[in-house]
Design a protein around this nucleic acid. Structure first.
Lengths: 199, 199
DNA sequence: ATCAGTTTTTGACACGATGTCGAGAAAGCA
DNA sequence: TGCTTTCTCGACATCGTGTCAAAAACTGAT
């Protein structure tokens, strides 16, 4: 069979960059084809449809992001880990020029709810994953370090609260673009969840 | 001069309903024209463009919503007011069949960030307005009822936190569609901000 | 080396959406 | 009744998605 003339992964990377910067609906396959130096028809042949291309590009991004997340949540005191988590989140939203915001949140609001329920599953999965990781983190802290008083709340409720705040940050980033404000909210959230003296 | 053959306000109402249900990019002017029994060209003549139509329809909605907001924030203990505020917010997200989500958040993520910075100003305005109203509410409570211990935090930071959570709720609503979960997060947020015994 | 089979590439096509334009219709006013 | 203004309506240009068929390029077997 005839071999493909372009790098599958490279195209996903280029496509996701465009989707991230301009949104899914704001990016045409012609844009991607031009940027990737590939014929538009070849994109349909290789990926199926615009939404399918976005989903594959998103999965690629999500894999990369997961590694960073592991690192952020993996070491130090609970407060340090949560701080690193919020820092990773905000830094990700503010990356690029101009800042690109949160691709998961944007994709979810752009695609979900119309007819094509495309990103719903991926976003749901990503959020659920985040929630259970943080729940586990809080549970471990609660079990292992109760004496130290790092955290004494409800792990599941607190984790849900934290993830909700990160989603709110994604929205406020688009509205205000005020990074110091986002970081203040993050710090305040950590204080609320841990208690101002906790950690 | 010849009078217009359709009800300007009625068309805005119909248009916003479609935008809310299907998103801005997911709604065509042909859809609206059909629903409103108006020629597509007349819409362009009367409103200028699709985005301009959306913005005018949004302003109309925002005016309606403001009245409900006043009512929710206007009476009772601080805890009652915040509860009413979250309740209004969530009920609004969950209105319609299927639930339509938050039009401000969705519009912001859909329009803002590409080229047309259309809803940015409106959303920014709406959020900023919300933040200052709640800040004032908390300040008043702090000043008037400090002895009762309803609230003893930083009003601005707490208000920002609360609004951030409502934006996060808008996102989680799209991802999970789990209304009880949203209400739990809201209750938990009030507890965190007021202290579990406050109010 | 040639040839059949398979997959990719490529350009043409159909369709729908946005936005513009001009001609015609209709209301109000002198 | 006739004039003017505004609206309505259909045609058009442009762009985006998605489909299809034919051509091109590689593989492997004869």
């Amino acid at each position: 069979m005839r071999p493909r003339e372009f790098d599958h992964d490279e195209v996903l990377r280029i496509a996701f960059d465009q989707f991230w910067r301009k949104g899914v609906r704001g990016t045409s396959l012609s844009d991607i084809a031009r940027d990737a130096a590939v014929q538009r028809g070849s994109l349909y042949n290789a990926f199926g449809s615009k939404e399918a291309l976005f989903l594959q590009a998103y999965e690629r991004y999500a894999g990369d992001y997961l590694a960073k997340l592991q690192k952020a949540l993996g070491a130090g005191s609970l407060r340090k880990r949560l701080t690193a988590f919020f820092d990773l989140t905000i830094t990700n939203f503010r990356s690029g020029t101009p800042p690109r915001g949160c691709p998961t949140t944007r994709g979810l609001m752009e695609l979900g709810g119309a007819e094509g329920e495309g990103l719903d599953d991926n976003a749901r999965q990503a959020f659920a994953n985040l929630i259970s990781r943080i729940t586990a983190l809080l549970q471990d802290t609660l079990a292992a370090g109760a004496a130290r008083g790092e955290f004494d709340g409800n792990p599941a409720a607190a984790a849900l609260h934290i993830v909700t705040v990160t989603r709110g940050l994604a929205v406020l980033e688009r509205a205000f673009g005020d990074e110091p404000q986002l970081r203040k909210i993050a710090a305040h959230t950590i204080d609320l969840v841990l208690g101002r003296n906790g950690g």
